[in-house]
């Protein structure tokens, strides 16, 4: 398999075929909680992309240069990854606050939420530690490949979040049966979208 094609497959697989929200159900809380307005969804998607990329880079370095050589990866990966993510988010928040107040106003409120966003830990774990990736690609991720995978996951997250928010904005004026108001109808929409995304299954043999 040539190099560029492999990158393309990893990216596409993470973005559409194994979409993190609709096919894998990771990080549903922001999907239901944040996606009521398009604007907040875009802010959230950008923050996730930013934090996820940094978290995967840091986790990859920690796994390949510290945990794996010392032979403790199997026991310590959970606490190490989650601490990396938590401190990274804290650091990013302080850094952005100091350097760019407008950016902080746009992204700031979502940053603390992202620590407990399963998507970040999931992307880091899958692209760094062997044995979790579900894509039909032989696993031996180098740093660029792990990054491509992560960016694909984050963009897939953003894409669905924004589509979802657009639909929900329209929903506010539509007649909905009383029992289905609020969260239940959101789940029905998620089911339909998920059905649409399932059409991508087996694309390019993934």
């Amino acid at each position: 398999m040539n190099e560029a094609y492999r990158y393309f497959l990893i990216f596409l697989g993470a973005l559409l075929i194994y979409n993190i929200l609709l096919i894998r159900f990771i990080a549903l809380c922001p999907l239901i909680g944040v996606s009521t307005q398009v604007e907040t969804s875009i802010g959230m998607a950008m923050s996730v992309l930013f934090v996820m990329t940094m978290a995967t880079t840091a986790s990859w370095v920690a796994w390949n240069y510290i945990l794996e050589p010392l032979g403790v990866g199997e026991f310590l990966y959970i606490p190490v990854f989650i601490l990396i993510i938590a401190s990274l988010v804290q650091f990013t928040e302080m850094f952005i606050k100091k350097v760019s107040p407008p950016l902080y106003r746009a992204m700031g409120i979502y940053l603390p939420l992202i620590t407990t966003n399963c998507a970040v830990l999931a992307a880091a774990t899958e692209s760094v530690k062997p044995g979790f990736l579900k894509l039909n690609i032989p696993y031996n991720f180098s740093l660029p490949e792990a990054l491509i995978y992560t960016i694909g996951v984050a963009l897939g997250f953003g894409l669905v979040l924004i589509i979802f928010a657009c639909i929900r904005e329209r929903l506010e004026t539509s007649p909905i049966p009383h029992s289905f108001k609020g969260a239940p109808i959101a789940f029905i929409i998620a089911a339909l979208l998920s059905l649409a995304f399932m059409g991508f299954a087996n694309l390019l043999g993934l």
Partner: peptide
């Protein structure tokens, strides 16, 4: 047993509870 089923089942359970 596929992915949309999870959303559908959960939505119906919640609607029942609301009712």
């Amino acid at each position: 047993i596929l992915f949309p089923g999870a959303f559908l089942t959960f939505a119906c359970l919640m609607a029942l509870l609301n009712r």
